Amino acid sequence: MKRAYSPKEIAKRTYKTLPFGGKWAAAFGSPEENSTWFISGASASGKSSFVMQLAYELTHYGQVLYLSYEEGLNQSFQERMLRFDLDKKQGWFRVVTSDTVEDLTERLKRRHSAKFIIVDSFQDAGWEWPETKVLLETFPKKSFIFISQEAKGQPLGKPAVRLRYRAGVKVRVVGFRAYCQGRFNPDAGNSFVVWEEGVLRTTNNF
């Protein structure tokens, strides 16, 4: 029979959290280092720019591996990488474009492998929910950040819907603002401004 935990045992547990500060803490609180993130948003909402800014922030806490399935290494990906100074993060930021789940599993088993894994996008990765669940359970000390496409304001595909329920940090990017909808949300009214000029344009507040 599997173990049952008492309230006292649970209360004594400690968790290693991301030491966010400033606008990151205001929008996302202090999530666990190994949290699963689920980031969604419509096309042209600022989602990709937000993810690059998040990747830069995470390089302060560990190595970031970016799985660029949707864009590969095209010009727009390159421009965003340069715009948010990730070219200055040599040794802390790496990009792959065609890893299968099996390839990624082998990569993450290596010593000194990445702590944060960004999957962009989950739909273009082509993974089903069972193999995604196995991946998360195989590497419980790592943080997976999944980027999801949307259809009519909802995650595209049943595997993405299942994944969203599993994620501890849920983020939706709307009008160049990223809103935390997950368990670590410090204030439902807060948001992370992805692009100030874009916010002004979408709100007609010039």
Rank of each mutant, 00 (worst) to 15 (best):
G41P: 00
Y69H: 03
L58Q: 01
F116K: 03
V101S: 07
G22N: 09
K89V: 04
L104I: 12
M52A: 13
S30D: 00
Y61F: 15
F20Y: 14
E71C: 10
L82H: 13
L104F: 14
E70S: 05
L67M: 14
L108I: 13
E106D: 14
Q75S: 09
T100L: 10
Y5C: 02
G91W: 14
F122C: 00
F28M: 06
I39F: 00
N34I: 05
G21T: 14
T97Y: 13
S45A: 13
E57A: 08
T36P: 05
M52H: 09
K8T: 05
I118Q: 00
G21M: 11
R107K: 09
E9R: 07
A26Y: 12
A27M: 04
I118N: 01
R111G: 04
L108D: 07
L67N: 00
S113L: 05
K16P: 01
S113F: 11
R111P: 02
T97R: 02
V95Y: 02
T105K: 04
G46V: 06
G46D: 06
S113Y: 13
G22E: 10
A25P: 04
F28P: 05
Y66P: 04
F28A: 02
F84G: 00
S68Y: 07
F116L: 09
S76Q: 11
S43R: 08
E71W: 13
K12M: 09
K115A: 05
V64P: 00
K16M: 09
S121R: 03
F93L: 11
L67C: 10
H60D: 04
V96Q: 02
K47S: 04
K89M: 06
T14K: 08
F122G: 00
D120I: 15
T97Q: 11
L65P: 02
G72V: 14
Y5A: 07
F20R: 01
K16R: 05
W24A: 01
E32F: 14
W37L: 01
D87M: 13
E79I: 15
E32Q: 14
V119I: 15
S6V: 09
K12N: 11
M52Y: 15
S35T: 09
V51A: 04
E71Y: 12
L58D: 03
E70N: 08
D99A: 14
Q53K: 14
D99R: 02
E106F: 15
S6K: 11
G72D: 02
R83P: 00
F77Y: 13
F84A: 04
R94N: 11
V64W: 02
T59N: 05
T14F: 15
S6G: 03
Q75N: 08
S6D: 03
K23Q: 07
I39K: 01
D99S: 11
S113V: 06
T105N: 08
N74M: 10
E9K: 04
W92C: 00
S98D: 12
H60W: 15
E32S: 10
V95A: 04
G41Q: 03
V96A: 02
K88I: 08
E70I: 10
K88S: 06
L108E: 05
D87T: 08
E32P: 01
I39A: 01
H112T: 06
D85V: 08
R94P: 01
A25N: 03
E9P: 02
H112W: 12
E57Y: 10
S6I: 12
E106P: 10
I118H: 05
T105D: 06
Y61Q: 03
A55C: 07
F38K: 03
